[in-house]
């Protein structure tokens, strides 16, 4: 499953970050954390845009619209904060690995149609939000130095935990 592949990749990154936590120099800095969070949001927007082109199920389509609306709102909030803090997001290996996996997944899902696509998208949204929430809890939130960035990440975690539950409901109804 692609969800597992992405999950494994991010878990590996989190483990690396965990090991690196003993060495403060390797811990992600605020500019990198912001880049990872922003990238993760954009990945979910791209997946939702693909879903709006392909999905047939009414609940799957409205879930995809919810993802676009919420992740755009969070990313806009993040951009405004970074501007205020004069922080430029810094690309990093975690962001690059996330993007690479997401691109591969978009290409794979492009080959699916009808209920097969709907199920794959909904199931992947459960796994993807689980993975991102795990990364926020274990690495990104504890590593964030700026209190406003930390607070936005904490709000983000609550939002994405909501998405995870919502995705579970949508996926369960498709079975």
């Amino acid at each position: 499953m692609l969800a597992f592949k992405l999950g494994a990749a991010v878990t590996a990154m989190i483990l690396t970050a965990g090991v690196a936590a003993a060495q403060p120099a390797a811990k992600p800095n605020d500019a990198q954390i912001a880049h990872i969070a922003y990238t993760a949001g954009n990945i979910d927007i791209a997946a939702a845009q693909q879903a709006l082109k392909k999905a047939k199920d009414k609940d799957v389509r409205s879930f995809a619209q919810d993802m676009i609306r919420d992740h755009k709102a969070v990313n806009d909030k993040a951009l405004a904060l970074l501007k205020k803090l004069k922080v430029t997001p810094e690309n990093n290996p975690t962001s690059q690995a996330l993007k690479k996996d997401a691109d591969a997944k978009l290409a794979d899902y492009a080959k699916l149609n009808g209920p097969a696509f709907d199920k794959a998208y909904a199931q992947n949204e459960v796994g993807y939000h689980q993975t991102v929430n795990g990364a926020l809890q274990s690495t990104l939130i504890p590593s964030a130095q700026n209190p406003e960035l930390k607070s936005l990440l904490e709000t983000g975690l609550k939002i994405f935990q909501g998405h995870e539950q919502h995705a579970q409901q949508v996926a369960a109804k498709l079975k």
Partner: peptide, 8 residues
């Protein structure tokens, strides 16, 4: 509850 965020 909130339909968009069922944890609310």
């Amino acid at each position: 509850f909130c339909r968009f965020h069922p944890n609310m």
